[in-house]
Amino acid sequence: MPDTATPADRTLRTGPGRLLVAVYSVFALAATARGSYQLATRFGEAPLAYALSVAAGAVYLVAAVGLARAGRVSRTVALAACGVELAGVLLVGSLSVFVPGLLPDDTVWSRFGSGYVFVPLVLPVLGLWWILRVHRTDRDRPGAGDRT
């Protein structure tokens, strides 16, 4: 499947998409840097929590790149990344509330992202909404379905 740039693909990264890419990049940097630093300096304290932060950072990075690149493949990748994020923030958020002992130290997703003013909870929803909206305009355009 060639990663061709159709007009709708370009709209994925323009307008609100550009803001999403910026926010995702900042969160990718914040989560990865924080997790790696904690893994490097305090591995023994809460390895699972720190590894989870790094993993979350990686997902944010994938989503940011997927949103920034034009193309159908990238859009699917970004869609999957946003889905993983939403699942992650809900799962880790619930675990941190109901099983507090499991993650001794906070991650980006702990308590549904309350340490980051709940942006991690809102972000995947916005991401999914934006990708699906672009996807719909793309699908409704006549002849757009031929190019896959």
Binding site: T14, G15, P16, R18, L19, A22, V23, V26
Partner: peptide
């Protein structure tokens, strides 16, 4: 500079 619409200032506001 890349985003010549209202979403440019939105990115700056977030930053």
């Amino acid at each position: 500079f890349m985003e010549r619409s209202k979403w440019g200032p939105a990115v700056i506001a977030f930053a």
